[in-house]
């Protein structure tokens, strides 16, 4: 992994972590990025704790140190504990999770490892445990966080390790 950032962020400090990052130098996409990121947190039926669980499990796959260090304050307020975060960092955390949490992790793993090979049993379990809108929210948030996490890694400048960092959803 590179140790130097490959792109310079824009000059100035707006206080918005997305606008102030390298993403801020592409004005054509910036507002779309911000609107989609906010909608992922605000406009879907899954709880903030479930969104964060999926986001953190995804970050484990992409290897994004920053994404793994961040905790969104809305998820903490919604009840996501650090103990739970440590559980989902395990290779096979299913035994320590609720059925919904187990299926969220299973979906994230499937999306990352073999999206075309989703087993019929996992499909049935997801349909039994989640409403359609919840499954759509889960799918879209995993796609979003996976793509943005890959972008963060590829832009370089990622440290080897980072302390836990609690932030608000940038708007």
């Amino acid at each position: 992994m590179t140790s130097a950032a490959r792109v310079s962020p824009p000059a100035g400090n707006t206080g918005n972590v997305i606008r102030d990052s390298a993403l801020g130098i592409v004005p054509e996409t910036l507002d779309h990025y911000l609107a989609l990121n906010a909608a992922i947190w605000d406009a879907g039926p899954l709880s903030a704790a479930e969104v964060e669980l999926a986001r953190l499990r995804n970050a484990r796959h992409t290897g994004c140190v920053l994404c793994q260090a961040v905790r969104y304050d809305v998820a903490i307020a919604d009840g996501l504990t650090e103990d739970k975060v440590q559980v989902i960092r395990q290779d096979d955390p299913a035994a320590q999770l609720s059925e919904r949490e187990r299926l969220i992790v299973a979906f994230v793993d499937q999306y990352n490892l073999d999206p075309a090979g989703i087993p019929a049993q996992l499909q049935q379990d997801l349909l039994a445990a989640f409403r359609e809108h919840e499954l759509l929210h889960l799918s879209l948030l995993v796609a979003w966080f996976n793509g943005s996490s890959r972008c963060a890694v590829a832009l370089g400048g990622m440290p080897e390790a980072m302390p836990r960092l609690e932030i608000s959803v940038p708007r």
Binding site: R6, S8, A22, V26, E28, T29, R150, C151, A154
Partner: peptide
């Protein structure tokens, strides 16, 4: 640099 960022976003 903006082209690299845009490409990574698109990918």
């Amino acid at each position: 640099e903006a082209g690299l960022v845009a490409l990574l976003q698109a990918l």
